[in-house]
């Protein structure tokens, strides 16, 4: 009797476990195949950039394998990092992105909080409207924006073209709608009872936002901030259209306009410039990635 029981007890789970393991292995192999393809596809260009950045112009144009560095040099890095023009681009990019992230977060947190929680007439329609504005492609917007800036110039006398700070006004039109949308989702997932408890505890709506919502929704806020930073750091079309002087350019446009002289492409420096330009978002992602995953709301309510 005991033996039978043991046999059944031992056999049943292993049979079930076996099929689960087989199934799991199949899915895993398939996942790895696609992941490897994905990684090769997306990491080849940066790798090529890195290899090229370590080459001299002579080696780049020589007929040797482009995938190997025969006489590595840091000359491209040294030249760029000591070039005042490149450092100006870098500074402009950092200034623009920092201001854009700050403005975006202030506006979208306030907007999302009021749209998600302070139910007022038309708030639902407005929330949808915010998202719809994000769907308008930026290529459609820069001509009306030119007109608007010309009008504002006539009205105020302030020159809105060819200043880096103009980008600080323009970029939020891209970042605020999406960030607001992300934040509405995050704020909506916070249990309603948390607001009610805080309101009974004596918090004002502003205190409710700063003392409860912002800390609880921090992962969402950081995700939105990273998005705003990436968009403003990598934006190409608007700076190309709105800024022209070398001292007002940001990195993406600066690299292309100053390192390509006529029909001479300084590939080593272009690749180095692009690689250095990609570093800040990468570093940001590396440090803040955990916040994407962290679930701070755990423990707020049952579960």
């Amino acid at each position: 009797m005991t033996t039978t029981a043991q046999t059944y007890a031992g056999a049943a789970p292993s049979a079930r476990g076996g099929s689960i393991t087989r199934n799991r292995r199949k899915v895993l192999i398939l996942s790895y195949v696609f992941l490897v393809l994905f990684v090769i596809f997306f990491l080849t260009p940066p790798l090529y950039m890195f290899i090229t950045s370590l080459k001299t112009s002579a080696e780049i144009s020589a007929e040797v394998s482009p995938w190997w560095v025969f006489s590595p040099t840091l000359a491209n890095y040294i030249q760029l990092l000591t070039s005042p023009v490149y450092l100006t681009f870098f500074r402009n990019s950092i200034l623009v992105s920092t201001f854009v992230v700050a403005i975006t977060m202030v506006v979208s947190i306030l907007a999302a909080f009021s749209l998600a929680r302070m139910k007022f007439w038309g708030s639902a329609t407005l929330a949808t409207g915010v998202f719809l504005t994000y769907l308008i492609p930026d290529t459609l917007l820069f001509i009306p924006m030119f007109k608007t800036f010309a009008f504002l110039h006539d009205l105020t006398g302030i020159e809105f073209i060819n200043h880096w700070w103009v980008l600080v006004i323009i970029y939020p039109t891209l970042t605020i709608p999406f960030c607001t949308w992300i934040m509405i989702g995050y704020f909506s997932s916070i249990p309603k009872e948390l607001d009610e408890a805080a309101l009974i505890d004596g918090a004002s709506y502003m205190q409710l936002l700063t003392k409860i919502f912002v800390p609880v929704a921090l992962p969402g806020i950081i995700a939105a901030a990273i998005f705003a930073f990436t968009v403003s750091w990598a934006q190409f079309l608007y700076p190309l259209a709105f800024t022209t002087s070398t001292d007002q350019l940001v990195l993406p446009v600066g690299i292309v306009t100053t390192l390509i002289k006529g029909d001479v492409f300084n590939w080593g420096q272009i690749m180095t410039g692009a690689l250095l330009g990609a570093a800040p978002p990468l570093i940001l992602y590396a440090f803040l990635m955990d916040y994407y995953i962290a679930g701070l709301t755990a423990g707020a309510t049952k579960g």
């Binding site: 249990p191 009872e193 309101l199 009974i200 409860i212 701070l296 423990g299 707020a300 049952k302």
Partner: peptide, 20 residues
């Protein structure tokens, strides 16, 4: 009178503790 000025305290079904 707003909730904070009613001098009441409430305990909720799902506790509503501030998680942070």
């Amino acid at each position: 009178v707003p909730p904070k000025d009613r001098n009441i305290a409430m305990v909720f079904q799902n506790y509503a503790l501030y998680p942070h």
